[in-house]
Amino acid sequence: MSLNRQSSFQKREEDGKGALYLVATPIGNLEDMTFRAVRTLKECDIIAAEDTRQTRKLLTHFEISPPMLFSYHEHNKAASGPELIRYIIEGKNLALVSDAGLPAISDPGSDLVKLAIAEGIAVIPIPGANAALSSLIVSGLSTERFTFIGFLPRERKDILTVLSPIQASHGTLLLYESPHRIIKTLGFINEMLGNRQVVLARELTKRYEEFVRGSVEECLAWLAEHPPIGEYCVVIEGASEVEEQKERDAWWQEISVQEHVTHYEESGLDRKEAMRKAASDRGVSKRDVYNALL
């Protein structure tokens, strides 16, 4: 991509284009809506929403009547995205909102941003509430470095693919999870990352806001007696310096998967056992090693 410079609030060349505003909305408590967000939604020509029914409630509360309210979500983004960009090119200002929090994080808003940038459209953030960062700052875990994972995939092999590269990451990890999958996900975390300290944050900014802090196993025991309710943000302690150093010192770090398997074959193991051993070293499934050898 070639160099792209945007001066959001300086006079731009008169190209007739509007702008794309990414407007944060409350994650629970309506008092978290900013004055700037309300003004922006009132002034924009179009509001694009992940769920128009949910957004209408918000707009009604703040007495906002947009000229146009569009549906833009994962299942219609391929068709709606270019249409919305066309409106902006024609001179209309568009505000994008998600169901809650900052748009373009773990939702299709990021695709609309890419389309806008490709067309030379100014993309302007209107900051506000965010579940992941709100959970992080009250977690008691390190805030110096962190990695946001979003939602983990559903299949075991895909989960292993996501978690394996960050096993030795020294930074705090953040992910979102539903109440139906939180117990299973904690099991994967325990398996892949160990019995680390975690924080289960739920119902953020709402009446029943709750933070459960403890080890993975302690949190699993808690959930066994207190069935999960509400959407969760999980904050996970980063790897210790000992774990990080151990990972760096692993003898196989600088060799390919093929060379890793060959090493064990030359030591006397059959190919199947060599693949299993290499997979164990790398913290991935045997199928991942098999696919890497194809």
Rank of each mutant, 00 (worst) to 15 (best):
M1I: 03
Q6K: 10
Q6A: 14
S8I: 14
F9G: 00
G16D: 02
K17A: 11
G18Y: 08
L20Q: 07
L20M: 07
V23S: 11
V23T: 09
A24L: 09
I27H: 05
I27K: 07
E31L: 07
D32A: 03
R36N: 09
R39K: 12
K42I: 06
E43H: 00
D45N: 14
I46R: 01
I46L: 11
I46M: 07
I47Y: 10
I47P: 04
A48I: 06
A49G: 10
E50C: 10
D51G: 05
D51L: 07
D51F: 02
R56H: 01
K57C: 02
L59R: 05
H61D: 02
H61T: 10
H61F: 15
F62Y: 13
P66Q: 01
P67T: 00
L69D: 12
Y72G: 01
H73P: 00
E74P: 01
A78Y: 12
E90G: 07
G91V: 10
G91A: 09
N93T: 10
L94A: 03
A95V: 05
A95Q: 08
S98G: 10
G101L: 08
L102G: 00
L102E: 04
P103E: 12
A104L: 12
S106G: 04
S110T: 01
S110W: 05
S110V: 11
A116M: 01
A118W: 02
I121V: 10
A129R: 00
A131W: 04
S135C: 04
S142A: 12
S142W: 10
T143L: 05
E144H: 12
F146C: 05
I149S: 00
G150Y: 09
G150E: 05
F151C: 06
F151E: 06
R156I: 09
L160H: 13
T161D: 03
V162G: 02
S164Y: 06
L174V: 07
E177R: 06
E177V: 10
L186I: 05
N190S: 11
E191Y: 06
N195P: 07
N195Q: 08
T205I: 02
K206A: 03
K206T: 06
K206H: 08
R207L: 12
Y208F: 14
R213Y: 12
S215T: 15
V216M: 08
E217Q: 14
E218M: 09
E218D: 15
E218H: 12
E218G: 14
C219L: 03
C219T: 06
A221L: 07
P227A: 03
G230F: 04
E231D: 14
G238C: 02
A239L: 09
S240F: 04
S240E: 11
E241D: 09
V242Y: 07
V242M: 10
E243K: 11
Q245S: 13
K246S: 15
K246H: 13
E247N: 12
R248D: 12
R248K: 15
R248I: 11
A250R: 15
W252H: 13
Q253E: 14
E254T: 01
I255T: 13
I255R: 15
I255K: 14
S256T: 15
S256V: 06
Y264F: 15
E266T: 07
E266V: 05
E273H: 00
E273G: 01
K277N: 09
K277S: 13
A279C: 07
A279M: 03
D281E: 14
G283D: 10
D288V: 12
V289K: 08
Y290D: 04
Y290V: 05
N291W: 13
A292Y: 02
L293A: 07
